[in-house]
Write a protein that binds this DNA or RNA. Sequence first.
DNA 1: GACAACAGGATTGTCAACAATAATGATGAC
DNA 2: GTCATCATTATTGTTGACAATCCTGTTGTC
Lengths: 220, 220
Amino acid sequence: MMTETIPTESTHSTLVDVLEEEIVLGWLQPRERLVEEDLTRRFGTKRHLVREAIFELERMGLVERVPNKGAVVRSLDPLEVRQVYDVRIALETLAAELIPLPAPPEVTAGLRDIQRRHAAAVDAGDPRAAFHANMAFHNALFAACGNPHLVDLIRQSAKKVHGARSLTAVDPVYLRRACDEHWAMIDALETGDRERLKDLFRDHILPSRDVYLARFGWRK
Amino acid sequence: MMTETIPTESTHSTLVDVLEEEIVLGWLQPRERLVEEDLTRRFGTKRHLVREAIFELERMGLVERVPNKGAVVRSLDPLEVRQVYDVRIALETLAAELIPLPAPPEVTAGLRDIQRRHAAAVDAGDPRAAFHANMAFHNALFAACGNPHLVDLIRQSAKKVHGARSLTAVDPVYLRRACDEHWAMIDALETGDRERLKDLFRDHILPSRDVYLARFGWRK
DNA sequence: GACAACAGGATTGTCAACAATAATGATGAC
DNA sequence: GTCATCATTATTGTTGACAATCCTGTTGTC
């Protein structure tokens, strides 16, 4: 039970972000209850806002809500994880096909900036900062495909399996590997090697899926 | 200004459904305001629920909301319409590749049932019923691909451009054409002609896009 | 007449108290 | 001892009232 009060300005979306972060990092475990009043006290905010945040987390697929009963962190069914990853691969492959290659210098420059922050966070052993920098990297990366709606669907799909990433999102081995792959992506963007880019996209997200399935069952 | 009071049981999602319907059918025009208290009276419900419904419509992309100002029916930018349709085609093509062919008889039987209702509504000149039967048809159709998450993304993308369909969703010519195409899809499912199925999917959704773009600009 | 300041109304945003519901534990009959 | 019944508590769901905000029209000043 965490009782620390976070005095940050508690708007609706920051609550969502913080809870999302805690789920990805494993602070909040599957099946753990989310009691509205507890969270209200913990964040020093109003129940009203906590309620909305929980509704949003439910829509994102991170939280399960039973009417009149409450909300718990969703435990992901392995089959569902597999299905979401299938779609993610398809979407990201599509994005890879749409990105103009070689990518313009300002794009790769921006990615380098973000990736430097990402690498620094990983080196510093700060999973929270690494998580955020990682999200920023992927957002900027896929934005290069020029279709904001596609980017949105990719982001949504990624969030849906956030809960499955608590195993790899705090593991230095996987974090470093992700760093290497990010640099490789930037390289592929610059050299204009589309096939390599597609392969990198696919191989980049599969580890988190496989670790999760290895841990929670390969059934079906 | 519609002042009829609809005494239907006004739960959160029914409000969303009704408003969604009115946007697709063109009852609510782009740029038209959605005032919370007006809707509260009109539906004989509580402002609380209307508020949530508006938030959900905003997430769906059907409504635009400016803080402290209010919500209006969103007018779709042609570029955005084009982008969403691009993604829709990609997603539906992917679904077409995943559907096992020939489709099992219970699937096509279910589709036939729905499509009979759809055709009846079109013949009766009831755009509202046609709209709902049409949605049901597509849901059942794509569900056959076996990946609920993909189905969800397809549905979401379709909703995002609902506003662009008010031109074709009430036009008997387009409604009949859609009917024919639905029957053709069932046929392709039964004969197992995957390429034809993909072509049908694509050609089925393009008219609504093209009519919208012809009306509101091909720029870019 | 143009413009700034202000007042009034319309609308959204926030809140805290209350009601409804489900879980938990206690009591008593057999 | 076990089961059904009821009271208690914990938690969510709803409501109406109030506060904050933004738009509009008006007044007064130059």
